[in-house]
Design a protein around this nucleic acid. Structure first.
Length: 646
RNA sequence: GCCGAGGUAGCCUAGCUGGUGGGGCGACGGACUCAUAAUCCGUAGGUCGCGGGUUCAAAUCCCGCCCUCGGCACCA
């Protein structure tokens, strides 16, 4: 028996293609396993706790419960439409989940793996709540840059311990945050270092996740598992605290299994099943370190494999919701009327599971039109149509070479699926379709049928057997379309085994098949491509008064030097006419300091001064930002220093 | 900076226990008509990131360098 899970989607936003990068391959995997007659349970659910949900609910003026409910419904709807076939999709707000979580945490406590410690935490008196580190803004104590409570994100990049940050403010309301002592609880993660090392050395799955974990395991710290929040699973030793979401979220794998089947104990306590977690690489830490340590501590069964998918890019750009490089599954893909199977195929076939997947609408169109429709779809359609028109019922006498060719594909597919090589598996399908086309083309049954109907039928039988195999092999990837096509030869794919691909019926009855796929036209994509571009370019309109607030002048670079320990930063002294300014600019990556000396540049002089990596900067040197590289703006002719720019 | 993955024709990739660089898409030419201008046959296109070394022989092994992406924890 196998238990397959997917990382729980966080019930704080809609599903995008990045999510599907994990869920689609997992679903394809599960569907193949089912066809390989393996007993498999496929589990997922909404991750509903944590501060971001509370904060976002407040913003929307609804309760956290309502917010979570909204996205939970969204997830279920989209997964259904995308044919992601979870056996059970739960949510972590449910009673049974809280009970299972508390039971496990109690075990950790009983075994002495939890201890308490006084820590100082930021507290906002106006919002009347403790602030998680990333909701605190202040100054880095090391380099004096603006920083977040948990790390100096703009300056030196150092990790900050709670309480270290200077001048802390509440990110939500802007008020000064104070530090309060509070007793929190820690899990003795450090006690599991040797265990995790050993565990990782035996862990199966994709190398990307395991390699990272091997590095992380060298430097473990105990893990603070409680938060000051009303929303979440109550911590048994102190009901005023809730558990950190990353404690209860993975326990969802257990509680959802428990809710779904009585066999849950065999799986999670006795260890009778192979447990396989599909995740995004971003949560590898939790799944390779925290999670196995917790399970071990509580005496539960351990995962056998962690399968981590690579990142998603949109039109070649790094995926980013805030910058607009995102494709929303429901609003953009499904609502545009595309067949869900197209996206499923794209995701599993674009590249190998661990590598970055680039989603581009043009590539999407080309791949689908050429591979799914022209190669595979057209083969199925031409064979079915030819058989239906000329025979109706075909006596299935199939050559041994044909069966062997199909068996070869089957083996390659099964082997690839077992290694999570979905591209390789789907490539094998396309190769078989291509073989079918070649066979049919070279056999010319449309000519032969004029003189020898028997011989033509033999060719058709061979082609039909290939078609049948293709429908079976493609079903896990494109279930909706294959079901439709399969009906034309009375196949019941739901109860089909992959072994049926090489089994030969006495005869096949063929019904009329409507065009199974619709090509993607350039015009279908226009709006979607535009939407992507607009989103990226979007900036609010401003008035001339707004623009006049900017004091922009021509300056002359008097001196340049590198900022210590920084790859990007240069420190300038710039003459702006009436004074000399020290300005820091991030252009070191494609400029040599000595080449910049004496150059005239455009300077925004009334920018609020800032400290960048500990160095004061008063103003900004303007440059064109071309894909992260900075190119200085330089006046067309030599003008006087201090000249205004309008 | 440190660690990991990777750099093979415009794009996606196979090859990486060394022995004349394969495939797919796209491009170009031809054939055919059962089929959604689909399919089939053929052609062009590569300094296998760069520089050294080992070897009779290196994309493949060793050394150095460059570039890309990711990780460097409590971020859900």
């Amino acid at each position: 028996m196998k238990l397959v899970t997917c990382g729980l989607p966080y019930a704080n936003g809609k599903l995008h293609i990045g999510h599907l990068r994990t869920y689609v391959p997992a679903d394809v995997y599960v569907r193949f396993l089912r066809m390989m007659n393996e007993k498999v349970i496929f589990i997922c659910g909404s991750d509903c706790h944590g501060t971001p949900i509370v904060v976002n609910a407040e913003k929307e003026g609804i309760s956290p419960k309502e917010l979570v409910e909204k996205y939970h419904e969204h997830f279920m709807r989209v997964f259904k439409e995308m044919e992601i076939s979870f056996d059970f999709f739960g949510k972590t707000t449910e009673y049974y989940h809280h009970e299972r979580t508390k039971e496990i945490v109690n075990r950790l406590i009983e075994k002495g793996y939890v201890y308490s410690k006084e820590v100082e935490l930021a507290f906002c008196e106006k919002c009347n709540r403790f602030l998680p580190d990333r909701y605190v803004e202040g100054i880095c104590p090391y380099c004096k840059s603006p920083a977040r409570g948990d790390e100096c994100d703009q300056g030196c990049g150092r990790h900050l311990e709670p309480g270290e940050i200077l001048e802390p403010r509440c990110k939500l309301c802007g008020n000064i945050a104070i530090f309060k002592k509070r007793k929190h609880y820690f899990f003795k993660l450090t006690a599991f270092q040797d265990f995790i090392k050993y565990y990782l050395s035996n862990l199966s799955g994709t190398e990307n996740a395991i390699n990272y974990a091997k590095e992380w395991v060298e430097n473990l710290k105990d893990w603070c598992i409680t938060r000051d929040l009303d929303w979440g699973v109550r911590f048994p030793l102190d009901e005023t605290l809730v558990l950190y979401v990353w404690v209860d979220a993975p326990i969802g794998y257990i509680s959802f299994t428990e809710k779904f089947t009585r066999e849950w104990e065999d799986i999670w306590l006795k260890g009778d099943a192979e447990i396989i977690h599909f995740i995004g690489l971003d949560i590898a830490y939790h799944h390779c370190i925290f999670w196995p340590a917790m399970l071990r501590a509580a005496n539960y069964a351990l995962p056998n494999a962690i399968v981590a998918s690579g990142m998603v890019k949109i039109e070649g750009k790094t995926f980013s919701k805030s910058r607009g490089y995102v494709v929303w599954v429901e609003d953009e893909y499904l609502r545009a009327g595309f067949n869900p199977d197209y996206l499923r195929y794209y995701i599993v076939n674009y590249t190998s599971h661990e590598k970055d997947l680039n989603f581009s609408w043009d590539v999407f169109r080309e791949k689908i039109n050429n591979e799914v429709i022209a190669t595979l779809g057209n083969f199925l359609f031409r064979i079915m149509s030819f058989s239906w028109k000329n025979f109706g019922t075909v006596k299935m006498v199939v050559d041994r070479e044909i069966i062997e060719r199909i068996a070869k594909s089957k083996e390659r597919i099964v082997e690839a699926i077992r290694k999570w090589e979905f591209k390789s598996a789907t490539d094998a399908i396309m190769e078989l379709a291509s073989f079918g086309n070649t066979y049919f083309q070279n056999s010319k049954p449309w000519e032969i049928i004029k003189s020898d109907k028997e011989r033509a039928m033999k060719i058709v039988a061979n082609a039909l057997q290939i078609a049948k195999a293709l429908i079976i092999f493609s079903y896990p990837v494109m279930p909706k379309s294959m079901e439709k096509i399969g009906k034309a030869i009375e196949m019941n794919l739901k109860s089909c085994s992959i072994e049926d691909a090489t089994k030969v019926e006495k005869e096949l009855k063929i019904m009329k098949l409507e065009l199974p796929f619709e090509k993607i036209e350039e015009k279908d994509l226009e709006n979607l491509k535009m939407a992507l571009l607009d989103r990226f370019a979007e900036k609010p309109e401003i008035s001339i008064e707004d623009f006049k607030k900017l004091d922009i002048r021509i300056g002359k670079i008097l001196s340049v030097e590198r900022v210590e320990k920084s790859k990007k930063l240069l420190k300038f002294i710039v003459d702006i006419g009436n004074e000399r300014r020290q300005i820091v600019a991030g252009i070191a990556e494609n400029h040599k300091p000595e080449e910049l000396l004496g150059k005239l540049v455009v300077v925004l002089t009334n920018l609020k001064p800032a400290r960048i990596m500990g160095v004061e900067s008063k103003g900004m040197i303007l440059a064109a930002d071309a894909d992260g590289k900075a190119f200085l703006l330089i006046p067309e002719k030599e003008v006087e220093v201090g000249t205004r720019v309008k």
